[in-house]
Amino acid sequence: MMSPMRTKYRKAHKGRIHGKAKAGFTLNYGSFGLKAVEPGRITARQIEAARRAITRHMKRVGRIWIRVFPDVPVSTKPAEVRMGSGKGTPEFWVCRIKPGRIMFEVDGITKTVAHEAFALAAAKLPVITRVVARVAEEV
């Protein structure tokens, strides 16, 4: 799973996700991409699950790019612990996603395979997504 090699601070505030993506909303590498259309926090596990789903569906052809990186630590308190006594321990990493963000890109596969692969990946993500294409002759 993806995680930062080192961080300046161990714990982060929960934060809020406002507005739309200011960058990373156009395809940069591949021919097809998976774009988030609502805000959300995506965990490293979800990114890995989506990546595996795409890779396995592509069956040894094509290439995949991951355009997001989980760099926000999320802490949790143990079960049956009273409130207070400080913040819990960091447990997993998440990536804050704004609407419009391209999360995955693929290339070297057909439109049908790309759509199928992204449908599998989208089922593993907590945000509503849609597939975007670089060339839109038919648009």
Partner: peptide, 11 residues
Amino acid sequence: AGAAPGAPGAP
């Protein structure tokens, strides 16, 4: 394949 170089926080 890795994270795309543009990914935020990607070292």
